[in-house]
Design a binder for these strands. Sequence first.
DNA 1: GTGGTCTAGACCACG
DNA 2: GTGGTCTAGACCACT
Lengths: 130, 130, 130, 130
Amino acid sequence: MITVDLKSRKPIYEQICDSIKQLVLTGALKPDDRLPAVRKLAVDLAINPNTIQKAYMMLEAQSIVYSIPGKGSFVSSEAENLTNVRRAEILNQLKTLVRESRHLGIAENEISSLTAQVFAENDDTVQQTI
Amino acid sequence: MITVDLKSRKPIYEQICDSIKQLVLTGALKPDDRLPAVRKLAVDLAINPNTIQKAYMMLEAQSIVYSIPGKGSFVSSEAENLTNVRRAEILNQLKTLVRESRHLGIAENEISSLTAQVFAENDDTVQQTI
Amino acid sequence: MITVDLKSRKPIYEQICDSIKQLVLTGALKPDDRLPAVRKLAVDLAINPNTIQKAYMMLEAQSIVYSIPGKGSFVSSEAENLTNVRRAEILNQLKTLVRESRHLGIAENEISSLTAQVFAENDDTVQQTI
Amino acid sequence: MITVDLKSRKPIYEQICDSIKQLVLTGALKPDDRLPAVRKLAVDLAINPNTIQKAYMMLEAQSIVYSIPGKGSFVSSEAENLTNVRRAEILNQLKTLVRESRHLGIAENEISSLTAQVFAENDDTVQQTI
DNA sequence: GTGGTCTAGACCACG
DNA sequence: GTGGTCTAGACCACT
Protein backbone atom coordinates (compact mmCIF):
# COMPACT_ATOMS: atom_id res chain seq x y z
CA MET A 1 0.00 0.00 0.00
CA ILE A 2 2.71 2.42 1.04
CA THR A 3 5.62 2.89 -1.28
CA VAL A 4 8.58 5.22 -1.32
CA ASP A 5 10.93 6.31 -4.08
CA LEU A 6 14.42 6.51 -2.65
CA LYS A 7 15.62 8.44 -5.69
CA SER A 8 13.02 11.16 -5.35
CA ARG A 9 13.99 14.61 -4.11
CA LYS A 10 10.97 14.58 -1.85
CA PRO A 11 12.02 13.55 1.68
CA ILE A 12 11.12 9.97 2.46
CA TYR A 13 9.23 10.89 5.60
CA GLU A 14 7.12 13.27 3.55
CA GLN A 15 6.39 10.55 0.99
CA ILE A 16 5.14 8.36 3.82
CA CYS A 17 2.93 11.12 5.19
CA ASP A 18 1.44 11.68 1.77
CA SER A 19 0.88 7.96 1.25
CA ILE A 20 -1.03 7.67 4.48
CA LYS A 21 -3.06 10.79 3.83
CA GLN A 22 -3.92 9.31 0.47
CA LEU A 23 -5.07 6.08 2.12
CA VAL A 24 -7.30 8.09 4.43
CA LEU A 25 -8.67 10.13 1.57
CA THR A 26 -9.58 7.05 -0.43
CA GLY A 27 -11.18 5.48 2.60
CA ALA A 28 -8.70 2.63 2.78
CA LEU A 29 -7.91 3.81 6.29
CA LYS A 30 -10.82 4.80 8.50
CA PRO A 31 -10.89 6.56 11.91
CA ASP A 32 -9.44 4.44 14.68
CA ASP A 33 -7.80 2.06 12.21
CA ARG A 34 -4.32 1.18 13.28
CA LEU A 35 -1.35 2.29 11.19
CA PRO A 36 1.33 -0.25 10.33
CA ALA A 37 3.77 -0.73 13.19
CA VAL A 38 6.83 1.48 12.87
CA ARG A 39 9.29 -1.41 12.89
CA LYS A 40 7.33 -3.57 10.50
CA LEU A 41 6.89 -0.76 8.00
CA ALA A 42 10.58 0.05 8.32
CA VAL A 43 11.46 -3.52 7.41
CA ASP A 44 8.93 -3.68 4.58
CA LEU A 45 10.20 -0.48 3.01
CA ALA A 46 13.81 -1.22 3.90
CA ILE A 47 14.34 2.18 5.45
CA ASN A 48 15.37 3.53 8.82
CA PRO A 49 12.72 3.25 11.58
CA ASN A 50 13.56 6.80 12.65
CA THR A 51 12.24 7.99 9.32
CA ILE A 52 8.90 6.23 9.86
CA GLN A 53 8.79 7.62 13.36
CA LYS A 54 9.27 11.10 12.02
CA ALA A 55 6.48 10.65 9.49
CA TYR A 56 4.07 9.49 12.18
CA MET A 57 5.08 12.42 14.36
CA MET A 58 4.31 14.85 11.56
CA LEU A 59 0.91 13.24 11.06
CA GLU A 60 0.24 13.47 14.78
CA ALA A 61 1.19 17.13 14.76
CA GLN A 62 -1.45 17.62 12.06
CA SER A 63 -4.04 15.74 14.17
CA ILE A 64 -4.46 13.16 11.46
CA VAL A 65 -3.17 10.44 13.72
CA TYR A 66 -3.05 9.83 17.47
CA SER A 67 -0.72 7.41 19.15
CA ILE A 68 -1.03 5.39 22.32
CA PRO A 69 2.33 4.55 23.81
CA GLY A 70 2.91 0.84 23.72
CA LYS A 71 -0.08 0.18 21.49
CA GLY A 72 0.58 1.96 18.23
CA SER A 73 -0.66 4.81 16.06
CA PHE A 74 -4.26 5.21 14.95
CA VAL A 75 -6.20 7.28 12.48
CA SER A 76 -7.81 10.22 14.23
CA SER A 77 -11.54 10.75 13.99
CA GLU A 78 -10.87 14.28 12.85
CA ALA A 79 -9.07 12.85 9.87
CA GLU A 80 -12.25 13.02 7.90
CA ASN A 81 -11.83 16.77 7.63
CA LEU A 82 -8.90 15.94 5.39
CA THR A 83 -11.22 15.57 2.45
CA ASN A 84 -12.63 19.05 2.85
CA VAL A 85 -9.23 20.61 3.38
CA ARG A 86 -7.80 18.84 0.37
CA ARG A 87 -10.80 19.77 -1.73
CA ALA A 88 -10.32 23.44 -0.95
CA GLU A 89 -6.63 23.18 -1.73
CA ILE A 90 -7.27 21.56 -5.06
CA LEU A 91 -9.86 24.06 -6.16
CA ASN A 92 -7.44 26.81 -5.28
CA GLN A 93 -4.63 25.27 -7.28
CA LEU A 94 -6.97 24.67 -10.19
CA LYS A 95 -7.95 28.32 -10.20
CA THR A 96 -4.33 29.41 -10.28
CA LEU A 97 -3.47 27.04 -13.08
CA VAL A 98 -6.47 27.97 -15.18
CA ARG A 99 -5.58 31.60 -14.73
CA GLU A 100 -2.07 30.97 -16.01
CA SER A 101 -3.45 28.89 -18.87
CA ARG A 102 -5.52 31.86 -19.92
CA HIS A 103 -2.46 34.11 -19.88
CA LEU A 104 -0.67 31.67 -22.14
CA GLY A 105 -3.50 31.69 -24.62
CA ILE A 106 -4.97 28.31 -23.88
CA ALA A 107 -8.64 28.34 -24.87
CA GLU A 108 -11.42 27.62 -22.40
CA ASN A 109 -12.71 24.71 -24.42
CA GLU A 110 -9.26 23.13 -24.45
CA ILE A 111 -9.51 22.89 -20.68
CA SER A 112 -13.10 21.70 -20.83
CA SER A 113 -12.23 18.88 -23.16
CA LEU A 114 -9.30 17.88 -20.96
CA THR A 115 -11.64 17.80 -17.97
CA ALA A 116 -14.26 15.80 -19.83
CA GLN A 117 -11.60 13.37 -20.94
CA VAL A 118 -10.41 12.76 -17.39
CA PHE A 119 -13.95 12.24 -16.16
CA ALA A 120 -14.48 9.69 -18.91
CA GLU A 121 -11.48 7.64 -17.80
CA ASN A 122 -12.05 4.17 -16.43
CA ASP A 123 -9.97 4.43 -13.32
CA ASP A 124 -9.80 1.39 -11.03
CA THR A 125 -9.25 3.51 -7.96
CA VAL A 126 -12.42 5.38 -8.66
CA GLN A 127 -14.26 2.11 -9.02
CA GLN A 128 -13.04 1.06 -5.59
CA THR A 129 -14.27 4.15 -3.86
CA ILE A 130 -17.76 3.85 -5.33
CA MET B 1 9.33 43.56 -11.10
CA ILE B 2 11.27 40.82 -9.37
CA THR B 3 10.49 40.02 -5.77
CA VAL B 4 11.61 37.33 -3.38
CA ASP B 5 10.23 35.92 -0.16
CA LEU B 6 13.09 35.26 2.20
CA LYS B 7 10.88 33.11 4.43
CA SER B 8 9.74 30.80 1.66
CA ARG B 9 10.97 27.22 1.60
CA LYS B 10 11.77 27.71 -2.06
CA PRO B 11 15.42 28.78 -2.48
CA ILE B 12 15.90 32.44 -3.28
CA TYR B 13 17.82 31.74 -6.46
CA GLU B 14 14.98 29.56 -7.67
CA GLN B 15 12.46 32.29 -6.95
CA ILE B 16 14.52 34.63 -9.07
CA CYS B 17 14.70 32.10 -11.91
CA ASP B 18 10.94 31.70 -11.80
CA SER B 19 10.38 35.45 -11.69
CA ILE B 20 12.45 35.96 -14.77
CA LYS B 21 10.85 33.08 -16.61
CA GLN B 22 7.52 34.64 -15.77
CA LEU B 23 8.64 37.98 -17.19
CA VAL B 24 9.67 36.23 -20.38
CA LEU B 25 6.38 34.35 -20.56
CA THR B 26 4.35 37.52 -20.16
CA GLY B 27 6.43 39.24 -22.80
CA ALA B 28 7.80 41.81 -20.37
CA LEU B 29 11.25 40.55 -21.36
CA LYS B 30 11.95 39.87 -25.00
CA PRO B 31 14.90 38.15 -26.71
CA ASP B 32 18.13 40.17 -26.43
CA ASP B 33 16.64 42.34 -23.70
CA ARG B 34 19.14 42.94 -20.96
CA LEU B 35 18.55 41.54 -17.50
CA PRO B 36 19.27 43.67 -14.42
CA ALA B 37 22.98 43.66 -13.56
CA VAL B 38 23.92 41.05 -11.00
CA ARG B 39 25.13 43.55 -8.44
CA LYS B 40 22.33 46.02 -8.98
CA LEU B 41 19.62 43.39 -8.55
CA ALA B 42 21.46 42.16 -5.48
CA VAL B 43 21.29 45.63 -3.96
CA ASP B 44 17.65 46.14 -4.97
CA LEU B 45 16.58 42.85 -3.41
CA ALA B 46 18.98 43.21 -0.47
CA ILE B 47 20.49 39.85 -1.33
CA ASN B 48 24.02 38.58 -1.84
CA PRO B 49 25.29 38.96 -5.42
CA ASN B 50 26.36 35.32 -5.44
CA THR B 51 22.76 34.28 -5.14
CA ILE B 52 21.74 36.34 -8.15
CA GLN B 53 24.73 34.98 -10.02
CA LYS B 54 23.59 31.46 -9.25
CA ALA B 55 20.12 32.20 -10.56
CA TYR B 56 21.52 33.62 -13.80
CA MET B 57 23.82 30.62 -14.17
CA MET B 58 20.88 28.24 -13.89
CA LEU B 59 18.95 30.22 -16.48
CA GLU B 60 21.96 30.11 -18.77
CA ALA B 61 22.20 26.33 -18.31
CA GLN B 62 18.61 26.16 -19.52
CA SER B 63 19.40 28.37 -22.54
CA ILE B 64 16.93 30.99 -21.38
CA VAL B 65 19.64 33.57 -20.93
CA TYR B 66 23.12 34.22 -22.28
CA SER B 67 25.78 36.25 -20.53
CA ILE B 68 28.68 38.16 -21.94
CA PRO B 69 31.34 38.95 -19.35
CA GLY B 70 31.85 42.67 -19.18
CA LYS B 71 28.61 43.46 -20.95
CA GLY B 72 25.70 41.89 -19.12
CA SER B 73 23.14 39.12 -19.24
CA PHE B 74 20.54 38.93 -21.96
CA VAL B 75 17.41 36.99 -22.80
CA SER B 76 18.19 34.25 -25.26
CA SER B 77 16.38 34.07 -28.56
CA GLU B 78 15.57 30.43 -27.82
CA ALA B 79 13.67 31.62 -24.77
CA GLU B 80 10.52 31.81 -26.85
CA ASN B 81 10.19 28.04 -26.62
CA LEU B 82 9.44 28.61 -22.96
CA THR B 83 5.81 29.22 -23.74
CA ASN B 84 5.36 25.84 -25.35
CA VAL B 85 7.22 24.05 -22.58
CA ARG B 86 5.20 25.81 -19.91
CA ARG B 87 1.95 25.10 -21.75
CA ALA B 88 2.66 21.37 -21.79
CA GLU B 89 3.57 21.47 -18.12
CA ILE B 90 0.36 23.23 -17.21
CA LEU B 91 -1.88 20.88 -19.13
CA ASN B 92 -0.17 17.99 -17.39
CA GLN B 93 -0.63 19.49 -13.96
CA LEU B 94 -4.24 20.28 -14.77
CA LYS B 95 -4.86 16.68 -15.74
CA THR B 96 -3.40 15.41 -12.48
CA LEU B 97 -5.41 17.85 -10.42
CA VAL B 98 -8.67 17.11 -12.20
CA ARG B 99 -8.05 13.43 -11.71
CA GLU B 100 -7.62 13.94 -7.98
CA SER B 101 -10.68 16.16 -7.90
CA ARG B 102 -12.70 13.33 -9.35
CA HIS B 103 -11.38 10.94 -6.72
CA LEU B 104 -12.53 13.36 -4.03
CA GLY B 105 -16.00 13.49 -5.46
CA ILE B 106 -15.84 16.92 -7.04
CA ALA B 107 -18.35 17.09 -9.87
CA GLU B 108 -17.34 17.88 -13.43
CA ASN B 109 -19.58 20.92 -13.62
CA GLU B 110 -18.00 22.32 -10.46
CA ILE B 111 -14.74 22.47 -12.36
CA SER B 112 -16.40 23.82 -15.45
CA SER B 113 -17.97 26.67 -13.55
CA LEU B 114 -14.62 27.47 -11.90
CA THR B 115 -13.00 27.56 -15.31
CA ALA B 116 -15.73 29.74 -16.76
CA GLN B 117 -15.42 32.09 -13.81
CA VAL B 118 -11.69 32.53 -14.31
CA PHE B 119 -12.13 33.19 -18.01
CA ALA B 120 -14.71 35.85 -17.16
CA GLU B 121 -12.27 37.72 -14.90
CA ASN B 122 -11.18 41.18 -15.88
CA ASP B 123 -7.45 40.73 -15.59
CA ASP B 124 -5.36 43.79 -16.28
CA THR B 125 -2.42 41.76 -17.46
CA VAL B 126 -4.56 40.03 -20.03
CA GLN B 127 -5.88 43.37 -21.20
CA GLN B 128 -2.34 44.62 -21.69
CA THR B 129 -1.26 41.72 -23.78
CA ILE B 130 -4.18 42.10 -26.17
CA MET C 1 41.31 9.67 -10.31
CA ILE C 2 40.25 13.30 -10.42
CA THR C 3 42.89 15.96 -10.69
CA VAL C 4 42.84 19.70 -11.18
CA ASP C 5 45.35 22.22 -12.38
CA LEU C 6 45.00 25.37 -10.31
CA LYS C 7 47.05 27.35 -12.79
CA SER C 8 44.94 26.47 -15.78
CA ARG C 9 42.77 29.11 -17.36
CA LYS C 10 39.92 26.61 -17.35
CA PRO C 11 37.82 27.08 -14.21
CA ILE C 12 38.38 24.45 -11.54
CA TYR C 13 34.74 23.45 -11.41
CA GLU C 14 34.79 22.87 -15.15
CA GLN C 15 37.89 20.71 -14.86
CA ILE C 16 36.05 18.61 -12.32
CA CYS C 17 33.01 18.30 -14.59
CA ASP C 18 35.23 17.17 -17.44
CA SER C 19 37.08 14.69 -15.24
CA ILE C 20 33.87 13.06 -14.17
CA LYS C 21 32.47 13.00 -17.68
CA GLN C 22 35.68 11.31 -18.71
CA LEU C 23 35.31 8.70 -15.98
CA VAL C 24 31.80 8.00 -17.21
CA LEU C 25 32.96 7.78 -20.82
CA THR C 26 35.70 5.28 -19.99
CA GLY C 27 33.25 3.23 -17.95
CA ALA C 28 35.09 3.83 -14.69
CA LEU C 29 31.84 5.26 -13.37
CA LYS C 30 28.61 3.46 -14.20
CA PRO C 31 24.97 4.51 -13.70
CA ASP C 32 23.98 4.70 -10.03
CA ASP C 33 27.62 4.63 -8.93
CA ARG C 34 28.23 7.09 -6.17
CA LEU C 35 30.43 10.12 -6.75
CA PRO C 36 32.97 11.17 -4.10
CA ALA C 37 31.31 13.18 -1.33
CA VAL C 38 31.50 16.92 -1.88
CA ARG C 39 33.50 17.59 1.27
CA LYS C 40 35.79 14.61 0.87
CA LEU C 41 36.71 15.49 -2.69
CA ALA C 42 37.25 19.06 -1.55
CA VAL C 43 39.74 17.88 1.03
CA ASP C 44 41.46 15.48 -1.37
CA LEU C 45 41.92 18.18 -4.00
CA ALA C 46 42.62 20.89 -1.44
CA ILE C 47 39.81 22.96 -2.85
CA ASN C 48 36.85 24.77 -1.39
CA PRO C 49 33.73 22.58 -1.08
CA ASN C 50 31.64 25.23 -2.81
CA THR C 51 33.64 24.70 -5.96
CA ILE C 52 32.95 20.97 -5.95
CA GLN C 53 29.32 21.68 -5.23
CA LYS C 54 29.19 23.95 -8.24
CA ALA C 55 30.67 21.24 -10.45
CA TYR C 56 28.13 18.68 -9.26
CA MET C 57 25.33 21.16 -9.78
CA MET C 58 26.38 21.72 -13.39
CA LEU C 59 26.51 17.98 -13.97
CA GLU C 60 23.07 17.65 -12.48
CA ALA C 61 21.78 20.39 -14.77
CA GLN C 62 23.06 18.27 -17.67
CA SER C 63 21.33 15.15 -16.30
CA ILE C 64 24.65 13.37 -15.97
CA VAL C 65 24.33 13.13 -12.22
CA TYR C 66 21.52 13.13 -9.66
CA SER C 67 21.89 14.11 -6.04
CA ILE C 68 19.88 13.06 -3.03
CA PRO C 69 20.36 15.38 -0.08
CA GLY C 70 21.62 13.43 2.86
CA LYS C 71 22.67 10.47 0.76
CA GLY C 72 25.10 11.52 -1.91
CA SER C 73 25.50 12.21 -5.62
CA PHE C 74 25.12 9.45 -8.18
CA VAL C 75 25.70 8.86 -11.87
CA SER C 76 22.45 9.18 -13.75
CA SER C 77 21.22 6.32 -15.89
CA GLU C 78 20.81 8.76 -18.77
CA ALA C 79 24.53 9.38 -18.58
CA GLU C 80 25.10 6.64 -21.11
CA ASN C 81 23.99 9.01 -23.86
CA LEU C 82 27.20 10.88 -23.14
CA THR C 83 29.13 8.57 -25.44
CA ASN C 84 26.99 9.41 -28.44
CA VAL C 85 27.09 13.12 -27.72
CA ARG C 86 30.84 13.08 -27.30
CA ARG C 87 31.31 11.02 -30.47
CA ALA C 88 29.40 13.58 -32.52
CA GLU C 89 31.44 16.37 -30.97
CA ILE C 90 34.70 14.66 -31.77
CA LEU C 91 33.85 13.98 -35.39
CA ASN C 92 32.90 17.62 -35.74
CA GLN C 93 36.15 18.84 -34.26
CA LEU C 94 38.09 16.44 -36.41
CA LYS C 95 36.41 17.79 -39.50
CA THR C 96 37.32 21.35 -38.57
CA LEU C 97 40.91 20.43 -37.83
CA VAL C 98 41.37 18.45 -41.01
CA ARG C 99 39.94 21.33 -42.97
CA GLU C 100 42.46 23.70 -41.45
CA SER C 101 45.24 21.18 -42.05
CA ARG C 102 44.39 21.19 -45.72
CA HIS C 103 44.50 24.98 -45.79
CA LEU C 104 48.00 24.85 -44.32
CA GLY C 105 49.17 22.47 -46.99
CA ILE C 106 49.28 19.30 -44.90
CA ALA C 107 48.89 16.33 -47.21
CA GLU C 108 46.10 13.81 -46.81
CA ASN C 109 48.49 10.93 -46.36
CA GLU C 110 50.26 12.78 -43.55
CA ILE C 111 47.00 12.66 -41.63
CA SER C 112 46.38 9.06 -42.61
CA SER C 113 49.72 7.96 -41.29
CA LEU C 114 49.16 9.86 -38.06
CA THR C 115 45.82 8.12 -37.66
CA ALA C 116 47.31 4.72 -38.42
CA GLN C 117 50.06 5.38 -35.91
CA VAL C 118 47.60 6.19 -33.14
CA PHE C 119 45.56 3.10 -33.88
CA ALA C 120 48.71 1.02 -33.66
CA GLU C 121 49.52 2.33 -30.18
CA ASN C 122 49.53 -0.09 -27.30
CA ASP C 123 47.30 1.86 -24.96
CA ASP C 124 46.71 0.22 -21.60
CA THR C 125 43.33 1.79 -21.22
CA VAL C 126 42.25 0.33 -24.52
CA GLN C 127 43.50 -3.06 -23.49
CA GLN C 128 41.41 -2.88 -20.34
CA THR C 129 38.23 -2.05 -22.14
CA ILE C 130 38.52 -4.99 -24.50
CA MET D 1 38.01 40.62 -43.78
CA ILE D 2 37.95 40.85 -40.01
CA THR D 3 34.74 40.03 -38.23
CA VAL D 4 33.78 39.67 -34.59
CA ASP D 5 30.85 38.00 -32.90
CA LEU D 6 29.78 40.19 -30.02
CA LYS D 7 27.67 37.40 -28.57
CA SER D 8 30.54 34.95 -28.43
CA ARG D 9 32.09 34.02 -25.11
CA LYS D 10 35.52 34.41 -26.68
CA PRO D 11 36.91 37.89 -25.82
CA ILE D 12 36.62 40.29 -28.70
CA TYR D 13 40.30 41.16 -28.62
CA GLU D 14 41.10 37.47 -28.96
CA GLN D 15 38.77 37.14 -31.92
CA ILE D 16 40.63 39.98 -33.59
CA CYS D 17 44.00 38.36 -32.90
CA ASP D 18 42.78 35.11 -34.38
CA SER D 19 41.35 36.84 -37.42
CA ILE D 20 44.63 38.53 -38.16
CA LYS D 21 46.64 35.38 -37.59
CA GLN D 22 44.29 33.67 -40.02
CA LEU D 23 44.90 36.38 -42.61
CA VAL D 24 48.63 35.87 -42.23
CA LEU D 25 48.29 32.11 -42.48
CA THR D 26 46.27 32.33 -45.69
CA GLY D 27 48.77 34.80 -47.12
CA ALA D 28 46.26 37.62 -47.30
CA LEU D 29 48.65 39.58 -45.11
CA LYS D 30 52.34 39.40 -45.91
CA PRO D 31 55.40 40.59 -43.97
CA ASP D 32 55.58 44.39 -43.72
CA ASP D 33 51.97 44.75 -44.80
CA ARG D 34 50.22 47.35 -42.75
CA LEU D 35 47.39 46.35 -40.44
CA PRO D 36 44.17 48.37 -40.54
CA ALA D 37 44.43 51.54 -38.48
CA VAL D 38 43.16 51.11 -34.94
CA ARG D 39 40.55 53.83 -35.22
CA LYS D 40 39.30 52.81 -38.62
CA LEU D 41 38.92 49.18 -37.61
CA ALA D 42 37.15 50.28 -34.43
CA VAL D 43 34.64 52.23 -36.47
CA ASP D 44 34.21 49.43 -39.01
CA LEU D 45 33.55 46.84 -36.34
CA ALA D 46 31.65 49.25 -34.12
CA ILE D 47 33.71 48.43 -31.08
CA ASN D 48 35.88 50.26 -28.63
CA PRO D 49 39.32 51.34 -29.98
CA ASN D 50 40.88 50.17 -26.72
CA THR D 51 39.88 46.65 -27.62
CA ILE D 52 41.65 46.86 -30.98
CA GLN D 53 44.64 48.36 -29.28
CA LYS D 54 44.75 45.45 -26.89
CA ALA D 55 44.56 42.95 -29.73
CA TYR D 56 47.48 44.63 -31.55
CA MET D 57 49.45 44.67 -28.31
CA MET D 58 48.96 40.95 -27.87
CA LEU D 59 50.10 40.33 -31.44
CA GLU D 60 53.15 42.49 -30.86
CA ALA D 61 53.96 40.53 -27.70
CA GLN D 62 53.93 37.39 -29.84
CA SER D 63 56.26 39.01 -32.42
CA ILE D 64 53.67 38.62 -35.12
CA VAL D 65 53.37 42.35 -35.51
CA TYR D 66 55.63 45.33 -34.98
CA SER D 67 54.41 48.87 -34.60
CA ILE D 68 55.99 52.19 -35.44
CA PRO D 69 54.57 54.99 -33.32
CA GLY D 70 52.74 57.46 -35.50
CA LYS D 71 52.85 55.21 -38.56
CA GLY D 72 50.90 52.09 -37.67
CA SER D 73 51.27 48.40 -37.09
CA PHE D 74 52.88 46.02 -39.57
CA VAL D 75 53.18 42.32 -40.08
CA SER D 76 56.50 41.07 -38.78
CA SER D 77 58.84 39.18 -41.04
CA GLU D 78 59.02 36.43 -38.47
CA ALA D 79 55.31 35.95 -38.90
CA GLU D 80 55.97 33.31 -41.48
CA ASN D 81 56.94 30.93 -38.70
CA LEU D 82 53.31 31.03 -37.79
CA THR D 83 52.55 28.38 -40.34
CA ASN D 84 54.98 25.93 -38.85
CA VAL D 85 53.87 26.62 -35.32
CA ARG D 86 50.24 26.24 -36.24
CA ARG D 87 50.96 23.06 -38.20
CA ALA D 88 52.59 21.46 -35.18
CA GLU D 89 49.70 22.50 -32.99
CA ILE D 90 47.16 21.04 -35.35
CA LEU D 91 48.94 17.72 -35.69
CA ASN D 92 49.09 17.51 -31.92
CA GLN D 93 45.42 18.23 -31.51
CA LEU D 94 44.60 15.73 -34.22
CA LYS D 95 46.57 13.06 -32.42
CA THR D 96 44.73 13.70 -29.18
CA LEU D 97 41.35 13.64 -30.87
CA VAL D 98 42.08 10.46 -32.81
CA ARG D 99 43.23 8.84 -29.61
CA GLU D 100 39.95 9.71 -27.90
CA SER D 101 38.03 8.54 -30.96
CA ARG D 102 39.67 5.17 -30.61
CA HIS D 103 38.70 4.98 -26.95
CA LEU D 104 35.09 5.67 -27.88
CA GLY D 105 35.12 2.85 -30.42
CA ILE D 106 35.25 4.94 -33.59
CA ALA D 107 36.79 2.83 -36.34
CA GLU D 108 39.91 3.89 -38.19
CA ASN D 109 38.19 3.86 -41.55
CA GLU D 110 35.48 6.15 -40.22
CA ILE D 111 38.17 8.75 -39.68
CA SER D 112 39.80 8.02 -43.01
CA SER D 113 36.57 8.55 -44.88
CA LEU D 114 35.97 11.79 -43.00
CA THR D 115 39.44 12.95 -43.98
CA ALA D 116 38.96 11.96 -47.59
CA GLN D 117 35.65 13.76 -47.68
CA VAL D 118 37.18 17.00 -46.41
CA PHE D 119 39.99 16.79 -48.95
CA ALA D 120 37.43 16.34 -51.69
CA GLU D 121 35.62 19.56 -50.74
CA ASN D 122 35.64 22.45 -53.14
CA ASP D 123 36.77 25.19 -50.81
CA ASP D 124 37.21 28.67 -52.23
CA THR D 125 39.77 29.59 -49.66
CA VAL D 126 41.94 26.72 -50.72
CA GLN D 127 41.71 27.84 -54.31
CA GLN D 128 42.99 31.27 -53.36
CA THR D 129 46.09 29.95 -51.69
CA ILE D 130 47.09 27.89 -54.69
C1' DG E 1 31.01 48.86 -14.50
C1' DT E 2 30.14 44.09 -16.31
C1' DG E 3 30.02 38.88 -15.46
C1' DG E 4 32.86 34.90 -13.56
C1' DT E 5 35.49 32.35 -10.20
C1' DC E 6 36.98 31.20 -5.72
C1' DT E 7 37.48 31.07 -0.63
C1' DA E 8 35.89 30.87 4.12
C1' DG E 9 32.62 29.88 7.02
C1' DA E 10 27.81 29.54 8.51
C1' DC E 11 23.23 27.08 8.90
C1' DC E 12 19.61 23.83 7.39
C1' DA E 13 17.24 19.39 6.36
C1' DC E 14 17.74 14.58 5.73
C1' DG E 15 19.07 9.87 7.17
C1' DG F 1 27.75 12.20 7.57
C1' DT F 2 25.22 13.80 3.26
C1' DG F 3 23.88 17.58 -0.17
C1' DG F 4 21.92 22.47 -0.45
C1' DT F 5 21.63 27.36 0.42
C1' DC F 6 23.38 31.72 1.67
C1' DT F 7 26.59 35.48 3.08
C1' DA F 8 30.75 38.24 2.90
C1' DG F 9 34.36 39.53 0.65
C1' DA F 10 38.20 38.90 -2.56
C1' DC F 11 40.33 38.90 -7.29
C1' DC F 12 40.23 38.49 -12.38
C1' DA F 13 39.25 39.59 -17.29
C1' DC F 14 36.68 42.29 -20.47
C1' DT F 15 34.60 46.76 -22.19
